[in-house]
């Protein structure tokens, strides 16, 4: 037998291997073949309805307004008037606080929620038996710097709350049922998933685009992605955020309100001392009252009017018969 010829046996082996490889390639192609061409725009995914964290309403205990300059005592009183924290937080609850931590500015300029207020609310939650209190926000400035410079990080450490710095994998693409703007949009979802109570905390600030930034505007901090595009229709996005999330309780801190250069401020001269703390189950009502502190009526704020029309709350806060008190410092 010459070297340039293979044996019959080798020839068959080679044919078998070739045949099997060919067949495998064909089978694989058949399995992977996609007969439907890919869609250019993806279908809406993760359609969600409102995330409801609210508790049962109690007649006559929907909103309280407490005057005084000490945030810790006014917030304690304001919550007490609504029935105390135990009305909202049951033992074993996991609570998420959503303050405004938007800017890496010190607390004295009041562009962000005050650390003492956060500390006190956390304490109240723990006193009511909360298992764990979390704090989160997706700030505008660098997240870590924001939590540090606003001193909310150190306040949280003191009172045992855990800060959740937003990470890429905390966001989930969400489509809100009935919404026009929140469509396949990244929402800071992970921190909301593991809690059963949510408390919104915000200040009262001048805001050129939306006129005033208060509790409802504060939920902007749950949006991810290039959320700046929503400023083109800011009233609608604020209302849609209110549709998305129904908080357990909201705290509006109007101890000092930012009357100019909002929402960043940056100087104490942008602030006005109004010594008021509002606790409410109705964020539309709380914001409507907050607007008055800036010299505005609820009709001046289109998002309040829209929210009322959709039944998200009432702009006529007087109809809720606010419980009032004064705390001397």
């Amino acid at each position: 037998m010459t070297n340039d010829k293979i044996s019959r046996r080798d020839f068959f082996i080679r044919c078998t291997k070739a045949g099997l490889s060919t067949a495998a390639a064909a089978v694989l192609a058949g399995i992977l073949y996609e007969s439907d061409p890919a869609k250019i725009s993806p279908q809406s995914s993760n359609i969600v309805e409102a995330m409801n964290f609210s508790v049962l309403p109690v007649a006559g205990k929907a909103i309280s307004i407490v005057t005084g300059s000490n945030r810790q005592s006014t917030v304690t009183k304001a919550v007490e008037l609504l029935g105390g924290m135990q009305r909202f937080i049951k033992p074993g609850d996991n609570v998420l606080l959503k303050p405004n931590v938007g800017f890496s500015l010190p607390p004295r300029v009041c562009a962000t929620s005050h650390p003492e207020l956060i500390e006190q609310i956390t304490k109240l939650c723990y006193q009511a038996g909360a298992k764990k209190v979390y704090i989160t926000d997706n700030p505008i400035n660098d997240p870590k710097s924001c939590f540090e410079l606003t001193q909310i990080a150190s306040a949280a450490k003191k009172c045992g709350a855990e800060i959740i710095l937003p990470r890429q994998d905390h966001f989930k693409q969400v489509t809100l049922k009935g919404a026009e703007l929140i469509k396949n949009w990244p929402i800071l979802y992970e921190p909301l998933k593991n809690v059963n109570k949510v408390i919104g905390i915000a200040g009262v600030k001048d805001h050129r685009r939306s006129i005033a930034s208060m509790l409802m505007k504060n939920w902007y901090g749950l949006l991810g992605g290039n959320r700046s595009i929503f400023h083109q229709d800011i009233d609608k996005i604020i209302v849609e955020l209110a549709m998305l999330i129904k908080p357990t309780l909201v705290i509006l801190d109007a101890t000092q309100v930012m009357v100019s250069n909002g929402p960043t401020g940056g100087s104490e001269s942008d602030l006005k001392q109004t010594d008021t703390m509002i606790a409410s189950c109705d964020q539309v009502a709380a914001d409507s009252f907050g607007a008055t502190l800036l010299g505005l009526k609820s009709n001046d704020l289109p998002y309040l009017v829209k929210a009322e029309k959709l039944g998200l709350g009432t702009t006529d806060y007087q109809s809720l018969k606010p419980l009032r008190a004064e705390v001397k410092a």
């Binding site: 700046s228 909002g262 100087s267």
Partner: peptide, 25 residues
């Protein structure tokens, strides 16, 4: 967006951190 398309926006004005703001409307 405000100049090219006539849609409201003002994100830049909102975020200007100096007081008084260097971006005005």
């Amino acid at each position: 967006l405000t100049w090219a398309f006539g849609t409201p926006c003002l994100v830049c004005q909102e975020n200007c951190p100096v007081s008084p703001k260097a971006i005005f409307a």
